[in-house]
Design a binder for these strands. Structure first.
Lengths: 228, 228
DNA sequence: GATTTTATCTCGGTC
DNA sequence: GACCGAGGTAAAATC
């Protein structure tokens, strides 16, 4: 990884053309030859970049101006960087990164709860995941110990929208005699964190709230499992 | 802009939770407090990041370990960075970036075609750009040599969705007696590249396809035009 | 390998 | 503020 801070102007030509006027910026040159141009703002997206695979060629023009040309052998995109003044130029050996471990997305939570519905309420068993309705799939459709249907809406962060969503599902499900013949379909709003407003609304509508302990749930899935 | 190279491990908690094991990485801290964590590979997307607005707090634990905590006041996302060894730490004043000048996107194509509608079909003249309808604006509404209305949908890459879109517009426009009294409103699907499926569908619906030569169009606009 | 779906999407626009 | 659509979308999951 090479880090360069320099006054530069940049031209990109590829699927579109783009130009960056002369200014001071950070140039990040990765081991695979890819180049990122960052300013002191914006978000994680660079002002301009070249994706790997690509090759950087350093040249000097007739007027003695340093100019980098980054080219992609596959897409024939090119990035031309004219360096007016180099303020910083260092190289760092980073080695290979072990990579990111992601976790806690709604889908994974849903999978875990589908495997362990009893953690939401005693005696609860799964009928099916993504139970289809006219207005969209219910995350989990379950049955309780008395054989009554229970609809579960899973969210990572439970806010008011999720309660509204579950309410709509419950209205619909309760019109289905196959599900509601033995008694009303109940709702459980399951999330890692439930916002106070959402809890009030849910309680008001007779919907139970379940705060999900993600780590404990993973422990059930695999007792020897450790987070990292 | 502060650039730090360090052996670190990182935990993120927000919309999801993520973990990066101990390894050497580049930390980019921008003027607005946002933080980017880059490794020596991947693409322009950082391994982990915090979007502005956010605040970085540097702390030292009981064991003397340096630990950064980046928090967002709005979304309560947090990024925790444990620094085992700092290999590089520099600050650079970049100033405000003048920003990127883009070219060749759909909007620009539309402008060029609005200036030169005859390149789409002989005798075509522009009535107006972004002609409003109940379901959204038609890119270009034109009139042909016989005084018949022609609706043009402009895309950079023409796929099936664009044809569907134009079809909906044509249906609507053909219900307007002011436009269709002299005869049916025709459609032209104009794009730099038209996918085979889209071409088949367009032909099937009596919509003409026009592959736009972007560079030639720019040449018309200004024969002496040079990129920058 | 091609295609579809997702994203801590980002970014710019309009309403 | 929201909502919508495009992106040099990229990247992951699926077929």
């Amino acid at each position: 990884m090479r880090l360069v801070v320099a006054r530069c102007q940049i031209d990109y030509a590829g699927r579109l053309t783009a130009h960056l006027p002369m200014a001071t910026r950070v140039l990040m040159i990765k081991a695979d030859g890819s180049v990122l141009v960052h300013s002191d703002g914006g978000s994680y997206k660079p002002l301009n970049w070249m994706s790997p695979p690509c090759k950087l060629r350093e040249g000097v023009s007739d007027e003695g101006v340093v100019e980098w040309t980054v080219t992609s052998p596959k897409t024939d995109d090119t990035l031309r960087i004219v360096l007016e003044e180099v303020l910083h130029d260092t190289f760092h050996d980073l080695g290979v990164d072990p990579g990111l471990q992601k976790d806690g997305v709604e889908k994974h939570l849903q999978e875990l709860l589908a495997d362990h519905p009893a953690t939401l309420a005693d005696g609860l068993t799964l009928v099916r995941r993504e139970y289809p309705t006219a207005i969209g799939p219910v995350d989990l459709l379950c049955r309780d110990a008395d054989g009554l249907s229970v609809a579960v809406e899973v969210k990572r962060r439970g806010d008011i929208d999720g309660v509204e969503q579950l309410t709509r599902y419950l209205e619909l499900l309760n019109r289905d005699p196959l599900l509601s013949s033995k008694g009303q379909v109940r709702g459980i709003f399951a999330a890692q964190e439930i916002k106070p407003q959402a809890r009030v609304l849910a309680t008001d509508r007779g919907i139970a709230c379940a705060v999900v302990d993600y780590d404990a749930l993973r422990g059930l899935d695999d007792p020897s499992h450790r987070l990292f």
